[in-house]
Design a protein around this nucleic acid. Structure first.
Lengths: 345, 345
DNA sequence: TCATAAATTGTGCTCGAACACAGTAATGCG
DNA sequence: CGCATTACTGTGTTCGAGCACAATTTATGA
């Protein structure tokens, strides 16, 4: 009934706990027959070391480096801080310290600078959002050569061996399509990419592919899928032109968190009959969700991504647990009626 | 930088660790001035005991009793077992044992019998699904008098002080209404209660209220909200009659996991144009979701409910953490495109 | 004043794993 | 054979909290 300890096994094998310990850690200096005997016993009773005792002894202060975009510059990242704090609170029993470094999500140079700063704190493991593919790739490679475990979220750097937590972007595009299809069957559909200052091109392309694949699979869909790329600065005018140029438009899919720009325009132009699906529960979007101009939002759950990322790293440090190489969160569909619980900290 | 230990505080206060320990645990026998001094120090440096060390010493085997409906009788509960196992795996570092007792969800007497069996294992804490209000109330009262902490999920027994994890049923009714409203605007709506053998009447009523409240808040909704109560045994015929009696029906809301019965009939009667929203990701429902006959399912997340319930109890036992009195999970909207990740174990 | 009780404080052991180091047995070699 | 080297094994300390018990100081009463 009670859990077996090293002492128990030593007794059963008729040796001392030192010997059992040597076997467990493959530290040699054990006679072959004794080793086999002990190993057989360990196997038989499925010995699990007491992690509390192990960790009590190795009472190391773990230092975790966190490198994420600055929420002051893009509010999307604010909830990540919550997620990180949740994970920290959960493991407050252990001596885990974090150093958070915020970088400007519009500035690749800043990313590299902050990364240098982080490196100076000599972190044991690292959690980061690798927004910039090229820069992140080399940075991640560097960490691999330093043998520092890195967890990433939001953006997957496929060239790297770092663990990743995020969502299936292709599938989320399909979900958007399914939602638009279920609320407006006949007219044209538009995919609108509103460019952010930093390159999220891969993100948006994946979503577009998913969106298109849904309609391609559909039998009997006669209307067309339009596409519109807009630079952040020219949003208003170009969007208005686009809307006027396509009077048959019935649904719009905005591939990032900027759906509120479209919503604002739809209200101004009295075209709120056009269905609108976007991403992310930032306050501007939620307002338009509640007013009915945005119909659905897809929740990328950055809070949970950060939380899980940190949790996996801590459990790896503290309990030697394996970090899943890739974990895709379920994709939440949000409308005005279920949004509230998703907003709480 | 390093975490403070009792020894550190003792040194700072110029006393022995025994005295500090007495202050921390209010065990008295400490001079008033010394106590104040130590207390001030504890406050100042925000002393947090090393939970590893604490738990290493108190190496007690915790015994958790779990009382839930038998998944063999109602498959809905199968995922709860997964959730429980997840929580156990997460805390495998601690000596936490569970004894699971499965009761027949159609049989109040069986609930009481299994409860007796559980009681015989003298559990430290209990996790249960209190399906039957009357029986559960008295059982919970008994546990309260025995000073055994109980966590409940799925069904809230308002008369009890046991902690509860579940969902806002009223709100989930509103969500169903919003979904149906967004995919079919003009025709009549029906709320269908398919009676299960056990009384989930409160559940279904709350959902109905929420559903109605959504349409009541709506301006310019002219059609009617119909209602249909069906006993499990008479499903087919009565449903068919109901459908034929209401040719203007455009949407159906099934208030429990039995939407697949309606879906089967809709397919048989070639009335799949009628929109259908139901509950729970059981395989029959998921099949109809994928075939398109069910449009949305609302996910009550029983797996997460069980997981969280057990997690809270374990953290209470192991870390003395407070158990939230009531925790309402966010309500997930599921369609055919986002269902897959929600099904994994 | 001194014995004794009461109040207060300090010491030392425990939990289980990890590891350093001491101890013992076996073998090699001149 | 004797001494050294290797091969193996056992002992004891550490981590931090908790608690029993010993030790010390202070108060009380005759």
């Amino acid at each position: 009934m009670k859990k077996y300890t090293i002492k128990d096994i030593a007794q059963l094998a008729g040796v001392s706990k030192g010997t059992v310990d040597r076997v467990i850690h493959n530290r040699g200096n054990v006679a072959k027959d004794v080793e086999q005997k002990v190993r057989a016993l360990l196997e038989e009773i499925n010995y699990q070391p007491n992690l509390l005792a192990r960790n009590l002894k190795n009472n190391k202060i773990f230092n975790i480096g966190v490198l994420i975009p600055d929420p002051e510059i893009d509010a999307y990242w604010a909830v990540c801080i919550d997620g990180i704090n949740s994970a920290l609170a959960e493991f407050s029993a252990f001596d885990v310290r974090i150093n958070t470094f915020l970088y400007d999500p519009t500035d690749t140079a800043d990313f590299l600078i902050r990364n240098e700063h982080m490196l100076e704190t000599s972190p044991d493991v690292i959690l980061m959002v690798p927004l910039f593919y090229k820069e992140a790739t080399s940075v991640l490679q560097h960490y691999q050569s330093l043998n520092i475990q890195v967890g990433t979220f939001n953006n997957q750097i496929t060239s790297s061996s770092a663990s990743f937590i995020g969502q299936d972007l292709y599938q989320s595009g399909r979900i958007a399509a399914k939602l638009l299809h279920s609320i407006s069957k006949n007219g044209d559909m538009a995919i609108i990419h509103i460019d952010e200052k930093y390159k999220n091109a891969v993100h948006m392309q994946e979503k577009e592919k998913g969106f298109k694949s849904y309609y391609a699979d559909l039998e009997g869909f006669e209307s067309s899928i339009l596409k519109c790329k807009i630079k952040y600065v020219e949003t208003e005018d170009k969007l208005r032109d686009f809307l006027n140029a396509h009077p048959n438009l019935e649904g719009i899919f905005v591939t990032n968190s900027k759906a509120y720009h479209v919503a604002r325009l739809l209200e101004a132009e009295h075209k709120t009959h056009i269905k609108l699906v976007g991403y992310d529960l930032i306050s501007q979007n939620v307002n338009y969700l509640n007013s009915g101009t945005i119909d659905f939002l897809i929740h990328q759950n950055p809070r949970q991504q950060a939380y899980l990322g940190l949790k996996y790293l801590i459990e790896h440090l503290v309990f030697d647990k394996q970090i899943p190489e890739k974990f895709l969160l379920p994709i939440d569909i949000i409308n005005s009626e279920n949004v509230t619980p998703f907003l709480r900290p």
